[in-house]
Amino acid sequence: MSLYFSLGKLVNDSCLEFQKNTFYCLVDHAGMPGLAKMLDRSKVPYSSVFDDTKEESALSVAPILFKLSDVASENHGGLRRWIEEHGSYTSSMILFTSSLLRDEVVRRLRIRLNAIVSENMEVLLRYYDPRVLEAMLNVLSDVQLQDFLSIADCWWYLNRQGALVKIASDFSQDDMFTSPLRLTEQQEFLMLDASEPDQIADQLQKMMPDIFHNLSISLRYDFICRNASRASAIGISGTYEVALYCGVALLHGEDFSSLPQWAEVVGKVQHRAIKFSTALSEE
């Protein structure tokens, strides 16, 4: 059994339900560097959603769109395996099926890049990152979500554990989405909160790259969420402090805070007498 997601299996399993549609793959190039070169080498056509925007020159971090049918032939077996191996656990790949032609799909994806948050600040909405899309599913109103997803009849994304998640949507021939997407202050904060595990992962990667690397990619998100919750329960807050707690859990085991040798540290933190980082430095 393969450790990686299969593009071919998705199409085969869904082609009868969406037999008149085109299957598209939308990739965050920042998470799969080298994809554009691989597509060029295989003469597979693709589009950057950043084209005709102020980010047009930033191909290395652009969302890239191509048809799954263009990588399905036997001639592209190596390219397809490369995409599956590099996309399964990098939170970089979104798939969807639509009756729209590629140029129209790109146009609709492009206008969805624009969002406005509190104080009327314009921001780039990185919905092409599956982690952001997943947060949007829980944060946007039903109407906002329906309009945003109306490009396609169905969406799929690979979550942080490498599992395929299906999103049902209602396709609209006439685009119902109004750009820019306006987020309330509460929605903005919820989106930021949803990104905290990824910020902690970045901190752990910097603090202890070798040890963090040894933790299976598919297990990292759940590990961080569990230990962030335990850190919160004893009064630890802030990304850096929580990341330190997770780091100690990596080194000494997830039950370290209940061990006698850690009782004094945990007690000081629980009683707000000291920060976790300060307590560690005193040990």
Rank of each mutant, 00 (worst) to 15 (best):
S150A: 15
A152F: 12
I217Y: 00
K67N: 07
D13V: 06
L109M: 13
A152S: 13
D13M: 08
W155L: 05
A168C: 04
L101T: 01
H213L: 10
S277E: 07
G77V: 07
L192K: 15
P260T: 15
S218P: 00
D103S: 09
I116C: 08
D170S: 14
K268Y: 00
Q187H: 03
V165G: 01
S88Q: 02
R160F: 01
V132I: 15
N227C: 08
L183H: 05
V27N: 06
Y221M: 02
E134N: 06
H76N: 14
D193F: 10
L183V: 01
Y4D: 05
E241C: 06
D103Q: 11
F212T: 05
P63S: 03
Q173K: 12
T97G: 04
E241I: 02
F212E: 09
A233D: 12
R110G: 08
Y24L: 07
L219W: 06
D255W: 07
Y245Q: 08
I224R: 00
T278V: 14
D153G: 12
S47G: 06
V165D: 02
L280E: 05
L140F: 15
E84L: 00
A135E: 04
D52G: 03
E134R: 04
T184G: 08
N120I: 02
S277H: 10
L140N: 15
I234K: 03
N12A: 13
D52S: 12
D198A: 15
P63G: 05
S169D: 05
I234Q: 10
L100C: 09
M207D: 09
S232Y: 10
A279C: 08
L183T: 03
N159W: 00
S258V: 14
F177A: 12
N21E: 13
